[in-house]
Amino acid sequence: MNISAITRAGAAGMIVSGAALGYSYVAHPHHMTPETIAAPFWIVIHALFALSLALGLLGTTALYGISAARAGGRGLAGYILLFFGMQLIFGLNYYEVLIAPFLAANYSQVIMEHGAGDAMGPVAVFFPLAGALTVAGYALLGWGWMRGEVIPRPVALALIVSSLAFGIGLSPLGGLMTARVTAAAFGASLVAVGIAAWRRPFASVAIA
């Protein structure tokens, strides 16, 4: 594969990832009762989350790998942070798609006591940490891409600002509506990165 093909493959992954992420957060059920978690819609929403994570990480890896020299140390630090953050989030998504619905249907008391899993034991620590690593990573990567002139400055700024805003939305300072709005904005910024990369394949930045 040539650089143009790799860039467009990564760009496509970012576009689908951002769209799936934004929709999933906006449509995510608010009341996480056993009945809600056992329903097909719950599985669909979290399968979309998993798709967003998988394609987002693949797309980001493709685009970062090509532009690593221009992204510099900030880009490298950002990529490392988001890589581990998204791996941790995917682990919880695996549980939410394949395990939580089974527990909700057959052992509802577990769900009533511990919720969907994000507050279950050590997960209560590692899930927020995973979110923080991911949004901080994308903010740093966006900064590296902006300094290296890899993607247009407005797109890079949108990625940086929306990443940090999403982090606030996911924190105790945020709330349900804040999390949904900032998630939609973050998803839109990933789509914008994908569109920018699709329009301008990275051949010119890969050898810098």
Rank of each mutant, 00 (worst) to 15 (best):
A62Y: 13
S162K: 06
I207P: 01
M86N: 12
A54Y: 14
A77P: 00
L98Y: 12
T178P: 02
A54S: 15
A165I: 03
L164H: 11
L103K: 00
F84C: 03
L164Y: 08
R153T: 13
I43P: 04
A50P: 08
F202V: 03
F186R: 08
T36Y: 12
S17N: 09
F186Q: 13
N93M: 05
A69G: 11
Q109K: 02
A11H: 07
V193E: 07
E113A: 05
Y25I: 11
V123P: 14
S108F: 03
L164T: 11
M14R: 01
Q87D: 04
M112W: 07
M120C: 14
L129Y: 06
A132E: 06
V135W: 09
F166W: 10
A68E: 06
V155H: 10
T7E: 03
M1F: 13
G194C: 11
I45T: 01
L159N: 09
G142K: 10
I99G: 09
G144V: 04
V16C: 14
H46D: 14
H46W: 00
P40I: 04
A136T: 08
A77Q: 08
A54K: 09
R70H: 09
L173A: 13
L129H: 06
T182F: 15
F126Y: 15
M112Y: 03
P172Q: 04
V135I: 06
T36N: 15
A139K: 04
E149M: 03
L159C: 07
T33P: 11
T36I: 05
T33D: 08
G56D: 14
A68L: 03
G194Q: 08
L57G: 15
V150Q: 06
G72F: 00
A68D: 05
A62T: 05
V205A: 11
M146I: 01
V191P: 02
P172A: 02
A158I: 00
W143A: 03
V155Y: 04
A77S: 12
A132F: 04
L190D: 02
L103V: 01
G169A: 03
M86S: 15
H46I: 00
V205Y: 07
N93T: 07
L190M: 10
T60Q: 14
I89Y: 12
V191Q: 03
A158M: 08
H28W: 09
A68W: 00
N2P: 05
P101K: 08
T182M: 12
Y138T: 14
P29G: 12
L190H: 09
Y23W: 14
T182L: 10
A47N: 02
I99W: 13
G56R: 08
W145I: 01
E35L: 13
S163E: 13
A38Y: 10
I111A: 06
I168C: 09
F126N: 10
V110R: 02
A124V: 02
G142T: 10
W145P: 00
I43F: 11
I66A: 12
L48N: 11
A124I: 01
L98F: 10
L98M: 09
G174H: 10
P34L: 06
G13F: 15
I80D: 05
